[in-house]
Amino acid sequence: MEKIKSFLKGFGKGFKKFGEGVSNVVNFVLLTFVYFIGIGITSLFAKIFGKKFLDMKEGEKSYWKNKEGEKELKDYKKMF
């Protein structure tokens, strides 16, 4: 009985690991697809039209950015 229990336990653990492995592979494939299609194409178009996503140029007079105005309670209910 003990042996069967430990076999089942081991089997369960192995199956869980296998499941995790499969989900990692699926995640990887999906994320690769999203990266090269979604991010890649957008980035390509952005480069063509000269759009910058990070402000990295030097030599400006000041690097401070002014903070936008007042917010209300309803603005704080949003995640953005």
């Binding site: 995640n27 994320l31 690769t32 990266y35 980035s43 996503f53 990070l54 949003k78």
Partner: peptide, 30 residues
């Protein structure tokens, strides 16, 4: 913090640095 604003920054970094950020993208997205 505001999670979506932070996510915007993460996506912007990936867009700016494509394709160098591939590993970081796959590593951080889950």
């Amino acid at each position: 913090e505001k999670p979506l604003l932070k996510f915007e920054r993460i996506l912007s970094s990936h867009l700016e640095t494509f394709p160098k950020s591939f590993r970081a993208f796959v590593g951080s997205m889950p």
